[in-house]
Design a binder for these strands. Structure first.
Lengths: 159, 159
DNA sequence: CCATAATCATTGGTGCGCCTAACGATCCGT
DNA sequence: ACGGATCGTTAGGCGCACCAATGATTATGG
């Protein structure tokens, strides 16, 4: 989607799903650009933020909390560990586990990413008034909540 | 994102960009599921719809109108041509071009996909009242318009 | 008129986010 | 003690968006 000059009033362009995915695309691009200017991507932020919020944890727990798939967790941690933003340590009490924790550099990086993220939000919402932003957020929250309930989070195969 | 049972109130989950991308994820999944039940995916619908709306055209023109990248156009047309939903013919007046057109089967498939698409919209917006759907659509349109203007569509490097 | 530029179709990549399948290692409940 | 669950890891796929390069063809303007 980077085209010039063609009549483009296609009929699907008013559909909620289209508006959502396209707007989300712009949002994602803004956020990703902000992150990449700090050499990071979405998963990096999510992992760092999760660590900051809940403290050191195993990869599996981090995956649950951040919504990052276990198999992607590995690469994400590798990337962050390479940059020494995060540390992998063996859990003496359970030798299956790694305990991942934030380094001071990681905390600093997180603060940087959060700044970038805040800027992205502003850029994203630029055309909306504060009240409109409020309403949009509320509507999206309702939608997300509804669909999260139906699918994703908290399907209990146990119990 | 298919996890059970973990405290998941992470602080980024109220951010507009998060709400947008996640909701869009659900929307995309709903739509994709609808399409895939007819053996299609997003690009297929977009191409078929573009053909139906603007008539036969070259791959390049279709790309411009549908927002599908030229390089993805090739595969998309291949897939649709295999199923005989679309036809590739040489343009006698310009031997660089292919003229792509919809077959009767293609039109029928498009109608099916449109039905599925409409169902997806309903499912997506289920928790919202008609007025709320209206407001959401309006807000998203404003956002999309704003960002489309700034980036994507209609950067004229010529002229 | 011809050289250069632009356009078209195609190939073969990249990146991100999300996801599945399989595996060995380890732990836990009964 | 054993079977089932959990943990980390590897390998891969899918969909969407995008970039770079190539060979053909056409358009242009000097």
């Amino acid at each position: 989607m980077e085209n010039p000059s063609d009549e483009t009033p296609a009929r699907w362009k008013g559909l909620p799903s289209w508006l959502l995915t396209q707007t989300a695309g712009h949002a994602g691009r803004l956020v990703a650009d902000g992150f990449s200017s700090a050499g990071a991507r979405g998963y990096h932020y999510r992992l760092l933020a999760t660590l900051a919020e809940f403290g050191p944890a195993s990869q599996a727990a981090l995956g649950r909390r951040s919504g990052i798939h276990l198999s992607d967790m590995v690469a994400t941690i590798n990337e962050l560990a390479e940059r020494e933003l995060v540390e992998r340590a063996l859990d003496p009490s359970d030798r299956r586990r790694n305990i991942i924790s934030l380094t001071p550099a990681g905390e600093r990086r997180l603060r940087l990413l959060e700044k970038r993220l805040a800027e992205s939000q502003d850029e994203l919402l630029a055309p909306l008034s504060p009240e409109e932003r409020e309403r949009l957020t509320e509507l999206l929250s309702r939608l997300l909540d509804h669909h999260d309930r139906r699918t994703g989070t908290s399907e209990e195969p146990w119990r």
